[in-house]
Amino acid sequence: MMKRGSSDLKLLVVLTVFSAVSGLLLALVNDVTKDRIAMVKVIKQQKALLEVVEPFDTCETETLLNDPFDPVEAFTCKKAGAVTGIAVKISSRLLSAEEMKKLNLSDSLKQPQAYGDPIKMLVGFSPAGKISGISFLEHKETPGLGSNIEKKEFKANYAGAMVEGKKWSVKKDGGDVEQLTAATITSRAVTASVVKAIEIYKNKAKSLNIIK
């Protein structure tokens, strides 16, 4: 049984000790797992890269927006010297006006948010201006509803479509993207992030003289 009638000082001491031990334990576990988790994420990103762009020998990484947790990056992938694809790593995070400017994105772009943390994704493009694939790196959407973004049927909204070939908003908002049942908010957040990726791809492709 638990002890009854403890003095206030004892309560204070016990709770303080509990919190301190728990804080220490969390710091310890975080320290042990930090590097491995980072490594797991890198591996996941590498796999995603293979998934979203055509086969390549090497990929050049360019950090467009520095952020310790959520950077925006562009990967230019080449095979035998020729560009086979460009991939953009982006999230649904709300970017400040300054950050939008850094990325050469128009202020008028809408930035709807997802339910959970920002959805991180990798969007691949072919040199001809086609979205060659999309892969979700991290998300915390509701299982069974928002998490259905991982399904092939939803990804098919983007993968295989020409950059200029679709109206990039969900059907509810008058666009061509088939929103997920019961997860319109998540679908909006993903679509708006893809729009950002498309703009970044266009800028990148122009600078490489792939498109005009």
Binding site: S6, L11, L15, L26
Partner: peptide, 20 residues
């Protein structure tokens, strides 16, 4: 764990545990 503060103590233990 003293009876009076058992709920906060449980929550600290459970939250720590789940995070670990």
């Amino acid at each position: 764990i003293p009876d009076k503060v058992r709920i906060p103590a449980f929550i600290v233990v459970i939250a720590t545990f789940v995070t670990v």
